[in-house]
């Protein structure tokens, strides 16, 4: 028996919003520790890794490991039926071929349940090697989203260049070029609003705007985003979801032909 209850369905709605542009279907692996999802997008350019820890749920029970292949379009339809203040409970029997979502309004006056067929997804599972990153940049997630959106107007790629002076985001295209430089916040009063740069070695890498924009769909999950970069390895864009886990996006850099 698997049962996981969240007091706020909005977290699950936001998680789905954050992955549905990249993935059409995905496997949710549930065990004692919580729910994990790891999948590459169709073109194998990016990888999404989601963790929702068991202790972040209002109630969590997982007697045996459960693997649930879900169509994310169908799951989105179902979660649209939940009010933001509703609690949501996901339930599945061992070896079941369906999952049930139960939504309860705050005053318990409305209870709805939606049963969804599970899919047999034979997806390969990739191991993510431990990596020491040369640069990590933390900044307000809304600022990152704004920059990606602004720069996307000019070009298809964004060059991220991190040096001891700060971090620079650049792009160029038919109409011209654009650069945004961010320096580390001088005095940190509010951690959520700070830009914090840690650099061992300078790194410059180029990434596809479209994917960075997909990742920023996670903005509402976290006030801060962390970018981790090293030469010739995928960029990691991490949003920590308060009290429950994280969503990490890995993006392969563009390379000289």
């Amino acid at each position: 028996m698997f049962e996981a209850r969240l007091l706020k369905s909005s977290i699950l709605k936001k998680v789905l919003e954050a992955i549905k542009d990249l993935l059409t279907q995905a496997t949710f692996d549930c065990d004692d520790n919580g729910i994990q999802l790891q999948a590459m997008d169709n073109s194998h350019v990016a990888l999404v890794s989601l963790l929702l820890r068991a202790d972040g749920f209002d109630k969590y029970r997982c007697d045996r490991n459960v693997t649930m292949g879900m169509n994310l379009g169908s799951m989105t339809k179902i979660l649209k039926c939940a009010g933001d203040k509703d609690t949501v409970t996901m339930k599945a029997q061992d070896n079941a071929d369906t999952v049930t979502f139960v939504f309860e309004s705050p005053n318990q006056e409305k209870v709805s349940d939606y049963e969804m067929k599970l899919m047999n997804l034979d997806l390969e599972h990739l191991g993510i090697p431990e990596t020491e990153y040369s640069c990590t940049i933390r900044m307000p997630s809304a600022e990152f989203a704004r920059m990606c959106r602004d720069l996307s107007q000019f070009g298809e790629s964004i060059v991220i260049s991190c040096t001891k002076e700060g971090v620079k985001f650049s792009t160029s295209g038919d109409i011209g070029s654009a650069n945004i430089k961010l320096a580390q916040t001088a005095s940190i009063d509010k951690e959520d609003e700070a830009v914090i740069i840690e650099m061992d070695e300078p790194v410059t890498l180029t990434f596809a705007c479209q994917y960075l924009n997909y990742f920023t769909k996670a903005t509402s999950l976290s006030p801060q985003v962390q970018l981790s970069m090293s030469a010739d390895v995928p960029l990691v864009v991490e949003y920590r979801i308060p009290d429950i886990g994280h969503i990490r996006y890995y993006l392969a850099p563009k390379i000289e032909e």
Partner: peptide, 13 residues
């Protein structure tokens, strides 16, 4: 510039 695949960076488990 060409887009590399992410698959080659990870190991299949």
């Amino acid at each position: 510039m060409s887009q590399s695949s992410i698959r080659s960076f990870f190991t299949v488990t």
